[in-house]
Design a protein around this nucleic acid. Structure first.
Lengths: 248, 248
DNA sequence: GGACAATGGTCTGAGTTCAAACCATTTCGG
DNA sequence: CCGAAATGGTTTGAACTCAGACCATTGTCC
């Protein structure tokens, strides 16, 4: 009883590790964040129409009023435009951009979160690739993957390539059929996007990256989980090495 | 333009897959859920004291008022008791129990979510085991893992074994050092707990499970990621096969 | 015994979010 | 041309949540 022992055993480290935020700030901020990220990642590409407000609100588990506040913010920030009437809706006007350089100050907290993102990515994306490779893919699914790969391989401008790359990785996640896997990869890709905006412009080796993409696609289509995993691991490791170096 | 094509390309499947709930119901319900689950999983074992309200509120990103509502609910449900004064606090009174049988109706939605949990687990836990094995573990970390394993291996009563098992898996996740990995494994374990409560009592093969645990621990301590992953994959697959069969 | 510290308990006013109507605009089909 | 349908726009009152201050209880240390 030297220091001030509790009468009963205290809950230990596990407790502090397990408890996490039950919500992220205001609902409307979270909506702006999620929709804005989806748009910047290219999930909703330039010119596409977002789902109707009522549907988005339902899907994001938020009232329509709150969702509309978020929409107003996106409109304010010139990411989208809105038209009324039948077949109206909200259209993405943002052209693909590389993440803004000054998006956030580099605090120690943020840096830790980034490293965490890289670690988590190393778990999730190779796992998703392997799982996707173990699925019996339908013909449309195979085409979707091939198309996503063709787009990323054919992208010439860095900004376009960036969006296509995100879409490629998200597409693989959707092939797993696991909603949680998609959510995890989305969050990881959002983190990557943020990191890329905060470090000095880096000369991504696009050719190298595309060779790895091709290898991943081949393995997934061939139903070879082990190879798909290894290829994705390699891909994640290469990106991570680059980023870690620049985040020092 | 046969069916009713939109003027602009619609956002496609990726959009609906990527968007997810921005929050889960009411904050106070989410707190009850998270704390209750943590207690039932054994993160806060019988007799241990929860962190002070102010700390919990901060960690869960919720006002103290809201957190206290949740505490009241837990008290009402006889999971905890509260004492005032210095070194007072909230103590776990729940004795380890197997998940309650009737916890929820088996809807199609729920079943899909369960299958999703199993898929996601197959990604996350083996990945976490491999990452943990690739870390240079400190002596206290190694002891923590050995202790968690000893507890689960020594548990005789099913309910105790269940809690120890959860703690074991969570412990491995913490060894990765990744907060997101811990969160993912927590969510997966919570899902498993729920599933175990909804299916006919199954004669878990505890010996078999413990041999796999031992193999995982050896590989992690030996710094052998590939073996750790394979061992954990095997472990997850065995559980999943059992559960999938019973969920039909 | 008295001061202090650590903890749960209570109160209050402001801000956020919700649910559910109902309105306005545009396009499609007859 | 007119009505129906699909969309965004607006309003309203109730419920939830927050932040912060302050109160009450109990144990520890001088």
């Amino acid at each position: 009883m030297s220091t001030a022992a509790r009468p009963a055993e205290s809950a230990g480290e596990l407790g502090v590790a397990v408890l996490h935020a039950v919500r992220g700030q205001h609902a409307f901020e979270a909506c702006v964040e999620q929709l804005g990220t989806a748009i910047r990642l290219g999930v909703f590409p330039h010119g596409s129409t977002l789902p109707p407000e009522r549907e988005l609100a339902t899907r994001m588990n938020v009232s329509r009023a709150t969702l509309r506040e978020a929409m107003a913010a996106l409109r304010e920030a010139d990411l989208v435009e809105t038209r009324r009437g039948r077949h109206g809706g909200t259209v993405v006007t943002l052209t693909p951009k590389l993440p803004a350089r000054s998006s956030a100050r580099r605090t120690a907290d943020r840096r830790a979160d980034w490293l965490d993102t890289l670690d988590f990515r190393r778990i999730v994306e190779p796992g998703a690739a392997a799982l996707a490779a173990s699925r019996e893919l339908t013909a449309p699914q195979r085409r979707t993957l091939e198309k996503a790969h063709a787009v990323v391989a054919g992208a010439t401008k860095p900004a376009t390539h960036r969006q296509a790359d995100s879409r490629f990785h998200l597409t693989i996640a959707t092939l797993t059929g696991s909603a949680r896997a998609v959510e995890a990869v989305t969050s990881v890709q959002a983190g990557l996007h943020e990191m890329l905006g905060a470090i000095p412009v880096l000369g991504t080796n696009i050719d190298h990256s595309d060779r790895q993409h091709a290898r991943i696609v081949r393995a997934v289509l061939a139903g070879d989980p082990a190879t798909a995993r290894r290829a994705m691991e390699q891909h994640c490791d290469d990106t991570a090495a680059l980023l870690r170096g620049l985040l020092e």
